[in-house]
């Protein structure tokens, strides 16, 4: 019987602990009356313009450094174009081929054994609004979240030599927990999965063991707890294996985790390559990071959780 091995990519979005949004002065908070924390900028009104939140850049630089990333000396924002009612401008200001940080890693303990999970990139972007579907087949939009500073952290598959990748649902959960711990130590984000300030969308595929060609992947959404991440990834791996063993084909799609039923279900097809028509945002000047700036941010990074653990073990003989 063919033995399958999983390929698990993690795309994590984290809301930053800034007082104001990524590109305007609107307050950042959770909950509250809809559409009370917005302005021409984050509402996408005619004439609204973005201005970079320096604090957000600082926090993201800090996070990227703590994830051992190289900081780009020059980075720019792109416009990611797509139409959706919760996207105020119908383009999202994001980063494309010049992200803030690249080539880092997150150290995890897989069954007590350390693994360095390769991180491909850390980039900055703005959050979207929120759709509320109400009675009478109507939808409402709340733009309080629109424009909040988001950091996206993406793992690298396959990893470069000397680094590892996530190989099980257990490791996916461990990766997320370690990442959360680091970001909490840095005070970059409060990482509350249930409130959506930390969101995880794993990409999952399986392939016959030893084969280099990747299988068709699916993306899982709506994972609102560490348990859900574990359960969702585990379910999806098993589902895909079952499909293949029965001679079927995995469909490229986004699947939604149903926490009550403990299953993933198809949300939308991703058969067609998405065309986001990225191009550099002319409203935002390039950002330059010199050694002095990076050094100053590096100096703010406290001792990180695993380093502290090792120090305690070494200094106090704890095992």
């Amino acid at each position: 019987m063919v033995e399958y091995e999983p390929v698990i990519g993690m795309e994590v979005h984290v809301e930053l602990l800034t007082k104001s949004k990524m590109f305007c002065g609107c307050e950042v908070a959770f909950g509250g009356a809809p559409n009370t924390r917005c302005c021409p900028g984050c509402l996408g009104l005619p004439g609204g313009l973005p201005v970079v939140n320096e604090k957000a850049v600082e926090l993201m630089t800090k996070a990227a450094l703590a994830l051992h990333c190289e900081i780009a000396p020059r980075t720019i924002f792109h416009r990611k174009n797509y139409f959706y009612p919760d996207l105020a401008k119908n383009y999202q200001v994001s980063q494309f081929d010049k992200p803030l940080g690249e080539n880092g890693y997150v150290e995890i303990l897989a069954g007590g054994k350390p693994k360095k999970i390769a991180v491909r990139r850390v980039h900055m972007e703005e959050d979207t609004g929120k759709l509320l579907h109400v009675e009478g087949n109507r939808s409402l939009v709340d733009f309080n979240r629109s424009g909040m500073a988001l950091m996206e952290i993406v793992t690298m598959n396959p990893p470069p030599p000397g680094f590892d990748q996530i190989e099980s649902a257990e490791e996916a959960r461990e990766y997320l927990q370690r990442l959360r711990q680091i970001l909490l130590y840095l005070e970059v984000s409060d990482c509350r999965m249930e409130e959506g300030s930390m969101r995880c969308e794993p990409n999952i595929s399986i392939k016959p063991k030893g084969q280099t060609k990747l299988g068709t992947k699916t993306e899982i959404k709506n994972l609102n707890s560490f348990r859900a991440v574990y359960m969702g990834v585990d379910f999806e791996l098993k589902r895909q294996e079952k499909v293949l063993r029965e001679g079927g084909k995995v469909v490229q799609e986004t699947r939604r985790w149903d926490d009550d039923r403990g299953v993933t279900a198809s949300m939308r097809s991703k058969e067609h390559a998405e065309e986001y028509r990225y191009y550099p945002d002319p409203d935002l000047s390039p950002m330059l990071f010199d050694e002095e700036y990076v050094g100053r941010i590096q100096a703010q990074i406290p001792e990180l959780p695993l380093d502290r653990l090792r120090r305690f073990m070494a200094d106090y003989g704890i095992s």
């Binding site: 509402l43 996408g44 383009y91």
Partner: peptide, 30 residues
């Protein structure tokens, strides 16, 4: 042309301005 294709994307009838009466779903409305 490139720049205006995104700067004018915000005119979709969702938040302000004239909205088509042929609403249907969100995509059709825009």
């Amino acid at each position: 042309a490139v720049e205006s294709s995104s700067t004018l994307a915000r005119f979709d009838g969702v938040r302000f301005g004239v909205r088509s009466k042929h609403a249907g779903d969100a995509t059709l409305m825009s």
